[in-house]
Design a protein around this nucleic acid. Sequence first.
DNA 1: GGGAATATCGTGCACGTGCACGACAAATTT
DNA 2: AAATTTGTCGTGCACGTGCACGATATTCCC
Lengths: 356, 356
Amino acid sequence: MDKVNKKLTIKDVARLAGVSKGTVDRVVHNRGEVSEASRAKVLEVIEQMGYRPNIYASMLASRRRYLIACLIPSAQGGEFWELVHKGIERARANEGNYNVDIEIFHYEQFDESSFRDTCRRLLESAPAGVVMAPMYRDSTAYITTELTQREIPYVFIDSRIENMGYLAYFGMSMFQCGYQSAALLTDCERRGPVGTFGIERASRRNNTTSERSRGFMAYIDEHMPETKVYEELLRPSDPAYNKMVLDAFFKAHPEVNLLVMFNSRVHLVAEYLEAAGVTGKRLVGFDMLPRNIDSLRKGFCKYLITSITEMDVYHAVQALAEFLTLHKNPAAKDNFSSIDILTRYNADYYFKNNHI
Amino acid sequence: MDKVNKKLTIKDVARLAGVSKGTVDRVVHNRGEVSEASRAKVLEVIEQMGYRPNIYASMLASRRRYLIACLIPSAQGGEFWELVHKGIERARANEGNYNVDIEIFHYEQFDESSFRDTCRRLLESAPAGVVMAPMYRDSTAYITTELTQREIPYVFIDSRIENMGYLAYFGMSMFQCGYQSAALLTDCERRGPVGTFGIERASRRNNTTSERSRGFMAYIDEHMPETKVYEELLRPSDPAYNKMVLDAFFKAHPEVNLLVMFNSRVHLVAEYLEAAGVTGKRLVGFDMLPRNIDSLRKGFCKYLITSITEMDVYHAVQALAEFLTLHKNPAAKDNFSSIDILTRYNADYYFKNNHI
DNA sequence: GGGAATATCGTGCACGTGCACGACAAATTT
DNA sequence: AAATTTGTCGTGCACGTGCACGATATTCCC
């Protein structure tokens, strides 16, 4: 509190407690080899005088390095996870500033066993902290339990599982995103039934899409509960299959004009609309993938709801590094980023002039 | 880049350049007393080897302290600026971690001459950095010019003046806020003319409200350009006057059902509606003041658009401290916080469980 | 050319902490 | 009782940089 505290050094504490600075150090770091009497005395002095170690001297003297493990899917070109990689790389540029090493543990996005294998490899590396997206609910529960047991802090990105012991979350409120998407989608004269899309293999497990879906439905229930909502599942890299599904859907439900894709691949739907020459649909999607932006420009996707993923991830890694090395708590547990709305008109100006 | 860089010290550079570490230090800090030959050689080595000083050693050795000056209005109870104060206090708790002192320079919110006087006092204190809200456009231009001349970095909070040389901005996109407010206000069956409110003395100068107003009008122009928009000005602490204005307004325009207050004091309007027994109006406002929340609960204000001001300010001070002491650039120039929408239903859950 | 002024540079201590090492006494074993 | 182990503790160097101080080389002036 007082500025005098700033000047209080370990040597002062030692003098006041009648011991040497070595002993104080042992107490501060719970390193044992201290008699109960000395320990109590030192703690009393620390408490009373409000001693706090100088983090700079500490960092300088300590040759310990902290390993930050990032658990994320490997990214193909243009995919969402490539944006995440960029954020990590940006954080890596600061590695030198902290006594921190950043290592990425990749797994196959749609392969839960790969996820678990990677979890094990990650645990074996005995990291000091973990940054991860909570992909599969069960497997995530598994690894977070292990991490908690080992007292390894972990930070969520992309989405979060509430009521879990994560140190912090950096990203959007996926529920709010879904809610916002519904508001945008239905903000027009022609209401009517809604077609929603997801990705087949991910639909039940992926937290991001399910939270968006929850938020979407919440808005619908609150504002237009009688609305009919259809659900279809696509495949990330099977255009023929997707064409089949979408052909059938629009044949069966030609009256559906409002469309939303909860996954990051709204371009799959937009590109179908373009190829099939379907017009007059109102489509909303998420995330700033290059192909999504293209769809936006061409007018087949009306709105993209997103934040700057790269920045979210950067902040996540940064916060963990500062927590580990400087013992600095994140500003908040849930650090929600802005819910930005991109249209064909403003997309070009987004994420420009926004950086140093 | 390479981890080897991490190990490169000033002594290594000295050896490679064939000089002593004192000389390298003089070059690094532009402290003169170095021959052009040595200087060139040292810079070459630094460049080639990618030497970057160890910030921890630097902080430890330097007994220099940085003064951060905060230029904000003094706050009465319950006002917006009290939230700003809380953010500064929160940052102050970290003072010891950086070699930083935080000082607050108060001025009278509605008195431009007081603003300029305080600017002068602030400049005399020769701060290392400034956190400020760009209140009066001209006076802000004056002080930022002075700061730029003295090479003192400044961070904007509350709102920003674009194309200015501020180091960073932490807060909402006021334009987006206004835009969002229009979308919420008109998201209902009964459209029609709109009544907008501001604060009398601030209207022309205050950047926050004018940006919100701009955003609001942008939405109206894009989506319902034929809409009639009225504008009235209230006084922050003159309820009799406000009652007179509002009485007259609703008498003259009984058909106006949609209302928005661009200042933080939407409760002025809400409390009038309550007192006058006017119902059936749809009112939208900004900022999480206690009295605004009250209005929300009672149903006289429908939506509050806000972010967690306290956190925005905390981040602003923190970023400046890290820039000064660690030479760490802010993550972005414009750090927009989330645009949160509060209703009588979710207000109680906002800003809870959201912190460590 | 001798002294003084100036330009340039090297040396060494201080910053506060982490930690290895060894000192010492008490407790235990042989 | 001597030898060994165990439990406590102090000492001192290292971390990389900032900066004061003084040393040396160079230039200038008369």
